[in-house]
Design a protein around this nucleic acid. Sequence first.
DNA 1: ATATTGGTAACTCCAAGAGTTACATCGTCA
DNA 2: TGACGATGTAACTCTTGGAGTTACCAATAT
Lengths: 138, 138
Amino acid sequence: MLSSSRFVVAVHAMSVLARFRGKGPVCSALVAQSVHTNPVVIRRLMTELEKAHLVRSIAGRAGGFELNRDPAQITLADVYFAVEDETVFRMHKTDPRSQCPVAAQLGQVLNAPLKAAECALHSSLAKTSIRDVASAIV
Amino acid sequence: MLSSSRFVVAVHAMSVLARFRGKGPVCSALVAQSVHTNPVVIRRLMTELEKAHLVRSIAGRAGGFELNRDPAQITLADVYFAVEDETVFRMHKTDPRSQCPVAAQLGQVLNAPLKAAECALHSSLAKTSIRDVASAIV
DNA sequence: ATATTGGTAACTCCAAGAGTTACATCGTCA
DNA sequence: TGACGATGTAACTCTTGGAGTTACCAATAT
């Protein structure tokens, strides 16, 4: 499985937005300070979250980012799959015409169980919402 | 989530070993040919699988690798966690003394749901054995 | 003895994330 | 309407980690 810290950072950012909900947009610099990173990194993440309709951006002066839905309606699964576009399992190159039947057929054989595992991960992450996370923070 | 192709390659190698089970050890060069990689890469992987007691190595001439258990008793979860030692989710650095309560507490708050998700992944992968994989290959 | 195999160190190569700087663009507000 | 403060994004560097490769030592069957 390939993992960066993108997912956790995205959850972090979404939690900040949740806590500022109703108080106007939050600028990337403020989120970046909390995450302890660069504003551009946050904006790039936000671009992906916006594509997934989880946040919206407001341009211009006094602009920033807001959650695009009730935080109770945004789950960790939503965030995960918005930001980690790769599939969970990375295949190596297999040659379907290989002499070795394992090399030739492994991809197809693993397809179902790996999909199932990805589904299980999704279901588990879907049980926790951004509201759950944000409200657990004092 | 951080993913390399290590997991899938390990399953590939284990499947090859399963098919040669009872016919003596399989050398790294043969596995490497099937996986289409370098024998050293296979040996390095095998070292990790051996630490997890999934395979054993036989040194010297006519040596190689064998499964260390009945392939029906080795699951994809065993292989996954033998080879992807990282936890599934990578945290960013958080400062517990941060002014921002999100930064200070996020790690602790996410701990349980992320553990649960990792568990769910484990359970799903545990449903498929190396025997299942190997026997699905003609 | 010798040939063949694993074990492992040391190095290079490559890809991807993260960080940074710079700048165009947008929209508010004085 | 003009300036300011924000996003959007390109371009670049730095770092990290996996993968590939070469080389050589240790082990062991023949």
